[in-house]
Protein backbone atom coordinates (compact mmCIF):
# COMPACT_ATOMS: atom_id res chain seq x y z
CA UNK A 1 0.00 0.00 0.00
CA UNK A 2 1.50 3.36 -1.01
CA UNK A 3 1.52 6.58 1.04
CA UNK A 4 -1.59 8.06 -0.59
CA UNK A 5 -3.66 4.94 0.07
CA UNK A 6 -2.44 4.87 3.67
CA UNK A 7 -3.43 8.52 4.02
CA UNK A 8 -6.90 7.85 2.60
CA UNK A 9 -7.54 4.96 4.99
CA UNK A 10 -6.39 7.04 7.91
CA UNK A 11 -8.51 10.02 6.81
CA UNK A 12 -11.54 7.77 6.53
CA UNK A 13 -10.92 6.30 9.97
CA UNK A 14 -10.52 9.70 11.55
CA UNK A 15 -13.54 11.32 9.90
CA UNK A 16 -16.24 12.61 12.25
CA UNK A 17 -19.36 10.49 11.75
CA UNK A 18 -22.65 12.18 12.55
CA UNK A 19 -26.17 11.79 11.24
CA UNK A 20 -27.69 14.19 8.73
CA UNK A 21 -30.06 15.52 11.42
CA UNK A 22 -27.05 16.63 13.45
CA UNK A 23 -25.52 18.58 10.56
CA UNK A 24 -28.84 20.15 9.64
CA UNK A 25 -29.35 21.24 13.25
CA UNK A 26 -25.89 22.77 13.48
CA UNK A 27 -26.34 24.51 10.13
CA UNK A 28 -29.63 26.03 11.28
CA UNK A 29 -27.98 27.16 14.53
CA UNK A 30 -25.20 28.93 12.62
CA UNK A 31 -27.65 30.63 10.25
CA UNK A 32 -29.71 31.75 13.24
CA UNK A 33 -26.63 33.07 15.07
CA UNK A 34 -25.57 35.02 11.99
CA UNK A 35 -29.10 36.48 11.77
CA UNK A 36 -28.94 37.56 15.42
CA UNK A 37 -25.56 39.19 14.94
CA UNK A 38 -26.80 40.97 11.84
CA UNK A 39 -29.85 42.22 13.71
CA UNK A 40 -27.67 43.40 16.59
CA UNK A 41 -25.40 45.28 14.19
CA UNK A 42 -28.36 46.96 12.52
CA UNK A 43 -29.59 48.17 15.92
CA UNK A 44 -26.33 48.88 17.70
CA UNK A 45 -24.46 50.79 14.98
CA UNK A 46 -27.11 53.50 14.43
CA UNK A 47 -27.59 53.73 18.20
CA UNK A 48 -23.85 54.27 18.70
CA UNK A 49 -23.83 56.93 15.98
CA UNK A 50 -26.77 58.70 17.60
CA UNK A 51 -25.11 58.54 21.02
CA UNK A 52 -21.91 60.05 19.61
CA UNK A 53 -23.86 62.87 17.94
CA UNK A 54 -25.76 63.60 21.15
CA UNK A 55 -22.54 63.65 23.11
CA UNK A 56 -21.07 66.23 20.73
CA UNK A 57 -24.17 68.39 20.97
CA UNK A 58 -24.29 68.20 24.76
CA UNK A 59 -20.62 68.95 25.21
CA UNK A 60 -20.58 71.86 22.76
CA UNK A 61 -21.72 74.61 25.26
CA UNK A 62 -18.98 73.60 27.66
CA UNK A 63 -16.31 74.27 25.11
CA UNK A 64 -15.66 77.91 26.11
CA UNK A 65 -13.52 80.07 23.83
CA UNK A 66 -9.99 80.66 24.94
CA UNK A 67 -9.93 83.86 27.06
CA UNK A 68 -8.28 86.68 25.17
CA UNK A 69 -5.05 87.97 26.61
CA UNK A 70 -6.06 91.16 28.49
CA UNK A 71 -4.94 94.27 26.66
CA UNK A 72 -3.98 95.92 29.94
CA UNK A 73 -1.33 93.41 30.77
CA UNK A 74 1.38 95.06 28.68
CA UNK A 75 0.52 98.48 30.06
CA UNK A 76 0.45 97.04 33.56
CA UNK A 77 3.93 95.66 33.11
CA UNK A 78 5.04 98.98 31.80
CA UNK A 79 3.61 100.62 34.92
CA UNK A 80 5.50 98.23 37.12
CA UNK A 81 8.65 99.07 35.24
CA UNK A 82 7.93 102.73 35.70
CA UNK A 83 7.32 102.28 39.42
CA UNK A 84 10.55 100.36 39.72
CA UNK A 85 12.26 103.16 37.86
CA UNK A 86 10.60 105.65 40.15
CA UNK A 87 12.08 103.88 43.15
CA UNK A 88 15.46 104.14 41.58
CA UNK A 89 14.92 107.71 40.61
CA UNK A 90 13.77 108.65 44.11
CA UNK A 91 16.81 106.98 45.61
CA UNK A 92 19.18 109.05 43.58
CA UNK A 93 20.58 112.27 45.07
CA UNK A 94 19.09 115.34 43.46
CA UNK A 95 22.44 116.67 42.24
CA UNK A 96 22.94 113.57 40.15
CA UNK A 97 19.68 114.09 38.34
Amino acid sequence: MNGDEKDKRLFSLMAVRRGEAFWAGRRAAIISAVAEKGQARRVVLPALGLAAALLLVLLAPWRRPEPEQPAVSAAFLENIDMLDDMDVLEALPEELL
Binding site: M14, V16, W23, R26, R27, I30, I31
Partner: peptide
Amino acid sequence: DLGDVLDEYQRRVYGFVLR
Protein backbone atom coordinates in the same frame (compact mmCIF):
# COMPACT_ATOMS: atom_id res chain seq x y z
CA ASP B 1 -23.12 32.59 -0.50
CA LEU B 2 -23.21 31.68 3.18
CA GLY B 3 -25.32 28.60 2.48
CA ASP B 4 -22.78 27.34 -0.04
CA VAL B 5 -19.92 28.06 2.34
CA LEU B 6 -21.66 26.13 5.10
CA ASP B 7 -22.44 23.22 2.78
CA GLU B 8 -18.82 23.08 1.71
CA TYR B 9 -16.99 23.66 4.98
CA GLN B 10 -19.26 23.16 8.00
CA ARG B 11 -18.50 19.45 8.48
CA ARG B 12 -14.81 19.84 7.81
CA VAL B 13 -14.39 22.78 10.19
CA TYR B 14 -16.37 20.95 12.87
CA GLY B 15 -14.29 17.80 12.35
CA PHE B 16 -11.07 19.78 12.48
CA VAL B 17 -12.02 21.56 15.72
CA LEU B 18 -13.39 18.40 17.31
CA ARG B 19 -10.16 16.52 16.61
